[in-house]
Simulated scan of single mutants.
Amino acid sequence: MRIGLAFRAFFKAMFDAQAAERMALALDGQSPAPAITQSATEPTAEKPAAPAPAKPTGQNPAITLLATLQRDARLIDLIHENLDQYQDAQVGAAARPCLKQCRQSLDRMLKITRLVDAAENDSIEVPGDTSPARYRWIGEGASSQATNAKLVHAGWQATTTDLPKWSGATADENVIAPAQITL
């Protein structure tokens, strides 16, 4: 049933501009204007063109997160630095404050907590109807049918999401950090 409907909708949209416009409005969650029927004796009035659905503006949340980590901790600078020219101790000394600030920023924006409240190597009870996003069976002999397992990694979850609001121009949506210039 749905495949047949999808084919009908596809071909109707390909060859009927008005139908395509109505489908686009319906898919965007807007109600299409009701169809008005006219008798042959009524003069035809030109229908006003439906406004084009507005393109959602705003920065992608992934870019917002990266921009915040770059601003607060210069994470991208560290990642893109050629680390081969430095000793391990120098890399560690540079990474420590960056990682601390990244953690503070992530804790402020996402409130990251452990997914499972148990220590690694503890035996835990795995619910039978669990989501693979919450529990991933690993290793040889791993069975999604088992109810007891040894915890290898507790996992992480965000308990809140509070990303900064972005108010820039549409042309700048993908800018993570501005170029810094001087005279």
Rank of each mutant, 00 (worst) to 15 (best):
R96E: 11
D77G: 11
A94Y: 02
Q104Y: 03
R103W: 06
A89T: 14
S105R: 01
L115I: 03
M109N: 06
S105T: 13
H80V: 02
L99S: 08
D84M: 10
D88N: 10
Y86N: 09
Q85C: 08
R108Y: 07
K111S: 15
Q90E: 15
E81L: 10
L115Y: 04
P97L: 09
D84R: 13
D88K: 10
Y86D: 07
N82Y: 05
N82A: 06
D117T: 14
A93S: 10
L110Y: 02
Q101W: 02
D117R: 14
D117L: 13
A89Y: 09
Q104T: 08
Q90D: 15
D84A: 14
Q87E: 15
V91D: 00
V91T: 01
R114P: 08
H80R: 09
L83P: 00
H80Q: 10
T113R: 14
L110V: 09
T113S: 14
I79E: 04
Q101I: 06
L106G: 00
V91S: 01
R103E: 11
S105L: 02
C98N: 05
R114L: 08
M109K: 03
P97S: 07
I76A: 09
Q85F: 11
Q101N: 10
D84V: 07
E81N: 05
R108M: 06
D88I: 12
L99V: 12
D84E: 14
Q90H: 07
C102N: 01
L78R: 03
D77F: 10
V91F: 01
A95P: 00
R114W: 06
C102F: 01
A89S: 15
E81R: 11
A93V: 04
K111C: 10
L78W: 08
C98L: 04
L78H: 09
A89P: 03
D117A: 15
V91N: 00
H80E: 11
K111T: 14
R103I: 07
K100C: 04
I79T: 06
L115C: 07
G92T: 05
P97N: 07
A89L: 12
D88P: 09
N82E: 08
L110H: 03
C102M: 07
C98T: 14
I112M: 13
L110T: 05
D117C: 10
Q87Y: 08
A89E: 15
R114D: 15
R108S: 07
A119H: 13
K100I: 14
Q87T: 12
V116T: 09
L115Q: 08
I76M: 13
L115H: 11
I112V: 15
Q85E: 14
N82M: 03
A118E: 07
L99I: 12
M109R: 02
D107E: 14
A93H: 09
T113P: 04
I112R: 00
D77P: 02
Q104W: 02
D107R: 04
A93C: 03
C98R: 05
R108E: 11
Q90N: 10
D88L: 13
V91I: 15
D77M: 07
Q90G: 11
A119T: 13
G92I: 09
L83C: 02
L115T: 01
Q87V: 08
D84T: 11
L106C: 06
D117W: 08
Q87L: 13
V116D: 00
C98G: 04
D88H: 11
L99N: 05
A89N: 11
Q87M: 12
A119K: 15
L78I: 02
N82G: 02
D88Y: 06
M109I: 13
L106T: 00
D117P: 07
K100D: 12
I112N: 00
I79W: 02
L110D: 01
